[in-house]
Write a protein that binds this DNA or RNA. Structure first.
Lengths: 388, 388
DNA sequence: AATCACTATGTAACCGGTTACAACTGACGC
DNA sequence: GCGTCAGTTGTAACCGGTTACATAGTGATT
């Protein structure tokens, strides 16, 4: 130890002060390689001595600061393990050189990327959008990046997106729902990165869940309507294919009704996606049912908006003749001429808690499922059953 | 060449057929290291001979297929440069071993990550949401991943998000708008990765633009209203602070009016964000103006929805007493009791073209700015000026 | 037959960090 | 005076791919 192979004085001999780069070094640092080339054109034989100071990298920082590469790395990653003096000196050099650690190199050697992947059915739907925003903020607060993918409610696409995210290197995965194909399941257990189910809650689940209890929210909604005297129900459910949350909501309604001896007749239960036009169309279909239901429960916000708008267009008095309620509280629900009674889920909490939970899992902490609060917001679209 | 250092027969001697892994090898492959550890526990001295066949990596694939690492790499990246025979053999082994290339290693050595960063003001607004979806699909089609960040219309946040994306390693950047701070500008020119401006169009711009011509769309809208006889205008603009698109739309309106000798009086021009409540509030304010305008142009869809709903609430006949038009065509615009005349921008084209353009730039192809089409969609909310 | 151009493949030096392990230092106890 | 222990710091071997350059093979040309 002591003198390096270039024959210059040892780093130790100049370790007492910050070494300012001579002009020549600045010039060589400025020599920019064309991007996309990626290989050092003319390192030929001389690579040893001084050439490796060209680009700003950890080794360069170490050399200028007069410390080892390990120390620089520690200053960045575990500052408390380095003496005060070295820490400030190294930080100063980092600042001065404008060094930015290369994430790929870091990922390669440390086996973690600092990125979390999340796969949502859609990115712009009210509840998902809010969750994404909150998740991104929560991850950023703990120095992680969010990689988003979109499955369009297609299980195959979801699987392939998961694959891609894993290839790309994510330290954790946030998924939506808890039902998935056997192949996907086995993929998830093979790769050994932590993941969780969001927007669902199941205390028994072996994989952590973060979300509202979809069935319970809907039960409460049924209770609300029953207490208003309603006995004949219709439901415009969100399509339950590939969507266990929607299925849970539908079943929540069914079970709550069953508990008080009621049921939705077959012609009163329809399913649709999540746009206004669909809500309108399905509402029309329910209108034709006899006897006509006095309360209609919609599986999401857009279906509810469609139903309410179509009711107005068809001259149906809401809530005089019929009550209509929804799920998910977007701004529009309270701004329409007839504000809509709905279930409000703290979707931003879903995002925030999901982020924190998956990070905790990565850090090896024990975590459990978390139920996110939801409540019904009563507005003008629900009222007492008509007196016939 | 010929025999490897483990003393086994040379790869060449068994190059004529696919070598099936002996059981012993499978066993050692199954020995899984705990994730998060990342260091090979006991490689101590023996690392050379056969130990490096443990985990599935490119070298392992090469060994099993009886080819060099370079060949495996080429099979993956430039298949056409490898003979048919080797290609199929290697692909078979890749399949058989279930090898997935490590993205970090690839990024480190090739200097490209296969990821594109995009920073949008918000992710769930109609036009951005559609663009994001389309962009993601277009990138996936060319084997790239989209990294999304959100600036919340805050230039500082936008800058810091850009920094983060660059640290994380993106090959290109898609930004929104074309005005930014000098510091951000200089950062963009320092780092040498391609980027473009989306949702704006400027044929003169040195950095490629992909978007509608905000001013022109609004001019057309003004022409439409003027042709209906309107002379007194109001505008609920989207806030123009940190938003050159909104400013362009406002100026487009102003200039088009000026061309026919008209102007919006000061009290007829208000600014708001982008929610319904804001649209309602601002509409009320314009109602108080005297003389009351006969046509109101809104800077985005939510402001227009708010204005139309508030008009209904206030008993203002639309379009009998007053015409109200918007910008951006989301489903709601056509489903409200009074469907709203608006500007429809092909936002998905913005996303698709932006993706292709930035990839072309990365590949060194020459690209130019592209104007994305937009058109006004006339609906019930705009009509002839009232006859006083 | 020697030479040349070209293609297919292998060898090994990288990319830029992290971290196990060793080496050193000073304090403390006996 | 010496062994032990805890706290710092350095050395160098990795992580798992890519690719410049060398080499071998194959016809075609002279």
């Amino acid at each position: 130890m002591g003198s390096d192979r270039s024959g210059r004085t040892s780093w130790r001999s100049r370790a007492d002060g910050l070494v300012i780069l001579p002009a020549a070094d600045y010039a060589s640092a400025g020599r920019q390689e064309r991007s996309g080339m990626g290989r050092q054109g003319s390192r030929s034989r001389e690579q040893g001595a001084t050439a490796d100071k060209a680009r700003v990298g950890l080794r360069r920082v170490a050399a200028v600061a007069g410390v080892s590469t390990a120390t620089v790395s520690r200053v960045v990653n575990r500052p408390e393990s380095v003496s005060e003096e070295l820490r400030t000196r190294v930080n100063l050099v980092i600042e001065q050189l404008g060094w930015v650690p290369n994430a790929a190199a870091r990922a390669l050697s440390s086996n973690r990327t600092g990125a979390i992947g999340a796969i949502f059915p859609a990115l712009a739907l009210g509840d998902f959008a809010r969750a994404i925003d909150a998740m991104q903020d929560a991850l950023a607060a703990r120095n992680h990046l969010l990689l988003l993918a979109r499955s369009q409610y297609d299980p195959d696409l979801e699987f392939s997106q998961a694959r891609k995210l894993v290839e790309r290197g994510v330290d954790g995965l946030v998924l939506v729902g808890s039902t998935r194909s056997a192949a996907f399941e086995s993929f998830l257990s093979r790769i050994e990165i932590p993941y969780l189910n969001s927007f669902v809650f199941d205390a028994e689940s072996p994989v952590p869940c973060v979300g509202p209890d979809n069935a319970v929210s809907m039960s409460e909604m049924v209770d609300h309507l029953v207490s208003l005297g309603h006995r004949r129900f219709g439901m415009i459910a969100q399509t339950t294919r590939n969507n266990d949350r929607a299925a849970a909501r539908r079943d929540g309604v069914r079970n709550a009704l069953a508990r008080v001896g009621l049921a939705i007749p077959p012609q009163g239960l329809v399913e649709g996606e999540w746009d206004i036009a669909e809500g309108r169309k399905l509402f029309r279909r329910i209108l034709d049912a006899t006897p006509r239901p006095t309360a209609i429960i919609c599986g999401n916000s857009m279906l509810a908006v469609g139903a309410v708008l179509e009711a107005a267009a068809a001259g149906v008095d809401v809530p005089g003749e019929m009550s209509i309620v929804g799920y998910d509280d977007i701004e529009l629900m309270s701004e329409l001429p007839i504000p809509i009674t709905t279930v409000r889920v703290a979707s931003d909490d879903v995002g925030r808690v999901a982020a924190d939970t998956v990070l905790d899992m990565i850090e090896g902490r024990a975590v459990g499922s978390q139920r996110i609060r939801s409540q019904i917001v009563v507005r003008a679209s629900s009222g007492p059953v008509p007196s016939d």
